[in-house]
């Protein structure tokens, strides 16, 4: 019953496959159910309508911006959480991960009372001439809020499994911390960072609750694909199903193209 492959122990009890198959069906069946509902003769006109294209374009643009923002904010957070040593580290981690378990609508309410006109920062922002509510920026903020933990978790995991040995060696050879970060740490965890970024992008693409609560819904400005689907469902079930399929397809393509299984190929690569 033991089998070996290049990367170590892979034997799985046969009965486990039965349960795994049930698990896989649980995810795949609803998607098939949706595909079965697609009105194929109308599919192309439905997904190429002006409103649909505007929503898809906005979704892709805002998700890309959110992913960039997640990298800018998330990389330092992950580094500090994985490598740093300070009081309140565990508390910080708990807070950073909070959006993972919060209902997105709660995130939206929180953002509203922070960046909104009457919010914590809203009046100062307004005095500076910045209005966030009802703008595309609000969409990006909402998406970043819910997607950031995905990047932090992925990257922190990669940093911890990579360990600090190579960095320690680099430091003893005289490299300053910034050089170690740039030349050793980041190249070593690049695959982990990439998969984290992809997850963040996918999460941003699917963001609904926080956007609806915080940003509003206007074609071309704040109405992303999930919001368009939600609205179309009111009157045109066919359009909602067609657009859902587009969203699934985009998500599958993005994830399949760039998300690698977390089998730590970066370690092998880093030792070369």
């Amino acid at each position: 019953m033991f089998r070996r492959s290049g990367s170590g122990y892979t034997a799985v009890p046969r009965w486990l496959y039965v349960f795994a198959a049930v698990g896989a069906l649980f995810v795949i069946l609803p998607l098939l159910g949706m595909v079965a509902k697609v009105n194929w003769s109308e599919f192309i006109p439905l997904i190429t309508s002006e409103a649909s294209l505007a929503a898809l374009g906005l979704s892709l643009r805002t998700s890309a911006a959110s992913t960039a923002l997640c990298i800018i904010l998330g990389v330092p957070l992950a580094l500090v959480l994985a490598r740093g040593n300070f009081r309140g580290q565990r508390l910080l981690r708990a807070f950073v991960l909070l959006p993972l378990v919060l209902p997105p609508v709660v995130g939206g309410i929180a953002l509203l009372y922070t960046f909104g006109r009457q919010g914590l920062l809203g009046s100062s922002l307004e005095m500076a001439g910045i209005q966030i509510a009802f703008s595309t920026v609000a969409v990006v903020l909402a998406q970043t809020f819910v997607a950031l933990p995905f990047l932090v978790v992925s990257l922190e995991g990669a940093l911890r499994t990579a360990g600090g040995r190579y960095e320690a060696v680099a430091a003893t050879l005289g490299a300053r911390p910034t050089t170690v970060l740039r030349r050793v740490t980041l190249p070593m965890v690049l695959p982990g960072l990439a998969s984290g970024a992809v997850l963040s992008f996918a999460r941003s693409l699917g963001e609904f609750g926080a956007t609806l609560t915080f940003a509003g819904s206007l074609q071309g400005v704040t109405r992303t694909l999930p919001l368009e689907i939600y609205l179309q469902r009111e009157t045109d079930a066919d359009a909602a199903v067609a657009l859902s399929l587009v969203l699934v397809a985009v998500a599958v393509i993005v994830v399949a193209l760039s998300y690698r299984s977390p089998r730590l190929p970066h370690l092998a690569r880093a030792t070369r």
Binding site: L212, T213, L227
Partner: peptide, 15 residues
Amino acid sequence: TPVSEESSVTDVLGK
């Protein structure tokens, strides 16, 4: 020329 077209009354009221 609204800044947002919400999908429910609740969302309009909330804003």
